[in-house]
């Protein structure tokens, strides 16, 4: 799976978790750019991403994600 394919599925996850059909995320997107992306929704997002890609993040990844680019890197590492 390449980065573009990951983004295609990841954007669908973000739209569902944050209930925003127009949401599109990129490498540089951070929690500050997405309304309601706080520690509560972060855990929901992580669980939804894990379900979507059938992977499991470790705690280092969960607490260390600074932007969506980091998340995509982590997904590609785990796949």
């Amino acid at each position: 799976m390449d980065r573009n394919e990951v983004y295609e599925r990841l954007n669908a996850v973000f739209r569902e978790v944050f209930d925003d059909e127009n949401l599109t995320v990129q490498d540089a997107t951070t929690a500050a750019d997405v309304e309601d992306w706080d520690s509560l929704s972060h855990i929901t997002l992580i669980a939804a991403v894990e379900d979507e890609f059938d992977i499991s993040f470790d705690m280092k990844t969960v607490v260390g994600l600074k932007c969506v680019g980091d998340m995509v890197d982590a997904i590609l590492r785990e796949l």
């Binding site: 520690s39 855990i43 992580i46 705690m59 969960v62 607490v63």
Partner: peptide, 11 residues
């Protein structure tokens, strides 16, 4: 508290 209690509990 987020990194060392809330996240580990939730996960």
């Amino acid at each position: 508290f987020k990194d060392y209690l809330f996240f580990p509990l939730q996960r």
